[in-house]
Design a protein around this nucleic acid. Structure first.
Length: 576
DNA sequence: CGTGATGACG
């Protein structure tokens, strides 16, 4: 890697020319870039398409896509290279709509797209399948498949939009393949979960580079086959920071934080990604202390979180309710005055609403200059589960006014909203209309919402029969919600059926156990709990008597318990 | 082309 690009200060400004700016596109320091940009303008070189391309690329690298666009706009006759660079700048800064807009401008201009245009365009988003197919058709028409990086990027895009079959077709039809083609195909199979096929291809490869090994390694790590991953890791001819991080992430995902930490400490070099994996690992498991310390150490090492780090750590914070660290990430991005990437704002909305700070979530949502479907969905769901069901439904109307097309996530939020305000009829309407009007096939999450809602509304038998007849095997979440409904509505006989289902899925879950005891106690049916079931419950109790999921994890247990006690007393005063 | 990565059922 070459060093940071520096403005040619030693040279007299008069000598600024295309030659001594040849490395400009690698400049990743915004301050340096601004300085050189003003020099370029002073010398009237900014209309030169070659220099403008370098400026566009550099602004993209500095995460300033709008500055890149303004450089572009001053060039009287943009070349295809300049168009391509701007398309790539927008793609790289997750502004897909602007990538496509630039592409359509290019088509209307006298400059024609070339074989670089389409790969950049394909990268511009996790492009929806239709878009990939459309671009594929363009490529076929123009005969660009001969440039090997074009089919290579098609394989990648098909894979990322979930069409591994089309990726296979492109791969098989290629007359000449390079190591990138093979790697892309292995990665595609790994992504699709077709681990055995990936391995077969990996074994067939005419040559392997470190990326091939890392892709295969990732396949085993993602599948939780850590022994196989570790074996491969040792057999690799060489390992880099990605290889280490891949295995590290594998251990973090299975919750083996000790092994993960051991690997992390042993890594010969760590980058932001490695730190992110370890910090998010701790944060998502509620190990707030470890996560904070590591965050300090990362900063001491001179590394600042990038977009991926922010999104990853924020989502880990959302999972465990770790508001303090989430706020810290938020503040760091504000301080650095970086454009808030849409994914970061989205992650913040989710984090704040999961931590109960709905005002902050709403403030971020409102201030976003561009919202995507995830933003709307997160906000709808956030409102719904924080007791603002009506507002959530209103926001859905606003979505429709803004012509945002809802997806499956949207309907989960809407069904949650119905649950919180008890709108059974409305929920049934949403449930049927999502498939009929929007073509969204309900998933187990939708059934879960509906079943929960019906159960809370006292329609226990209907909830139970849906759980039995829906196209998915009911899981512990669903049985748990029915069981809870049985408790609320004192239905002991159904509870007994549900207990059997639940016990086979989550035999030692303390929360279920407490509900079961409550139901039988309330009904005075202690006798009914004879035999095997009682024994099972007893052994579960002895193993972890009186423990809940948060016990032992918190350094502030005493304060929390006192607060709970005070809350309880306060509630009694208010109610009585 | 490979590591982290925003939204879902109690």
């Amino acid at each position: 890697m070459s060093g940071p690009f520096l403005p040619p200060q030693s040279t007299s400004p008069r000598l600024l020319n295309v030659q001594n700016l040849s490395e400009l596109h690698k400049c990743s320091d915004p301050r340096c870039l601004l300085q050189i940009h003003s020099q370029i303008i002073r010398h009237c070189l900014h209309r030169n398409p070659v220099i403008a391309s370098k400026l566009v690329a550099a602004y993209s690298l500095c995460l300033r896509p709008y500055s890149a666009a303004s450089v572009f706009s001053l060039v009287p006759e943009p070349t295809s290279h300049l168009f391509n660079t701007l398309i790539r700048a927008f793609a790289h800064n997750s502004l897909p709509s602007l990538s496509f807009f630039t592409f359509s401008r290019m088509q209307r201009s006298s400059v024609k797209p070339d074989s670089f245009t389409y790969p950049f365009l394909l990268k511009s988003s996790s492009a929806p399948l239709r878009t990939v197919e459309l671009i594929h058709a363009h490529i076929l028409k123009l005969g660009f498949l001969g440039d090997i990086f074009v089919p290579n990027s098609l394989i990648d895009s098909y894979s990322k939009s979930g069409e591994v079959g089309s990726a296979k077709m492109v791969f098989e039809e290629m007359l000449v393949k390079d190591v990138v083609s093979w790697n892309s195909m292995v990665a595609a199979l790994v992504r699709a979960g077709e681990l055995r096929d990936a391995r077969r291809l990996f074994d067939e490869m005419p040559e392997r580079d470190i990326i091939s090994w890392n892709s295969m390694l990732d396949g085993y790590a993602k599948a939780g086959e850590l022994d196989a991953a570790f074996d491969l890791f040792h057999r690799m001819p060489a390992r880099n920071v990605v290889s280490w991080s891949t295995v590290l992430a594998g251990y973090c995902n299975t919750g083996d934080m000790e092994t993960a930490r051991m690997l992390f400490d042993k890594m010969p070099a760590k980058n932001v990604v490695a730190w992110t994996i370890m910090i998010s690992g701790y944060a998502s498991k509620g190990l707030a202390h470890d996560a904070s310390i590591l965050m300090d150490q990362m900063e001491e090492a001179g590394l600042e979180p990038d977009v991926g780090a922010a999104v990853g750590i924020l989502s880990a914070c959302a999972e465990s309710g770790f508001l303090v660290l989430g706020k810290r990430i938020h503040a760091a991005f504000k301080r650095r005055k970086l454009r808030f990437f849409i994914q970061i704002s989205n992650a913040l909305i989710d984090m704040y609403s999961k931590c109960g700070d709905l005002d902050e979530a709403w403030a971020i949502f409102e201030e976003m200059e561009e919202k995507d479907l995830v933003s709307w969905n997160s906000m709808v769901h956030g409102l719904a589960v924080n007791g603002h069901g009506r507002r959530a439904l209103e926001l859905f109307s606003e979505m429709e006014d803004n012509r945002i097309v809802p997806d499956g996530f949207t309907f989960v939020g809407l069904l949650c909203a119905c649950t919180h305000i008890g709108l059974i009829k409305e929920a049934r309407r949403f449930f049927t209309s999502m498939e009929k009007e929007y073509g969204i096939v309900p998933t187990i999450e939708h059934y879960g919402c509906l079943i929960d809602l019906l159960g809370r509304g006292g329609l226990l038998m209907e909830a139970y029969s849906i759980a039995k007849t829906m196209p998915f095997e009911a899981n512990a979440v669903i049985w748990g919600s029915i069981l809870n409904a049985c408790r609320v509505h004192n239905n002991v006989s159904l509870a007994e059926k549900v207990v059997d289902e639940l016990m086979s899925l989550e035999p030692s879950h303390e929360g279920n156990f407490a509900i079961i005891l409550n139901i039988f106690a309330a009904a005075g049916k202690w006798d009914a709990m004879g035999g095997d079931r009682l024994k099972m419950k007893d052994s579960a109790r002895r193993n972890r008597a009186g423990s809940s999921c948060v016990d032992g994890m918190h350094s502030q247990e005493d304060r929390i318990l006192k607060m709970l006690d005070r809350l309880g007393k306060h509630l009694k005063k208010v109610i009585c």
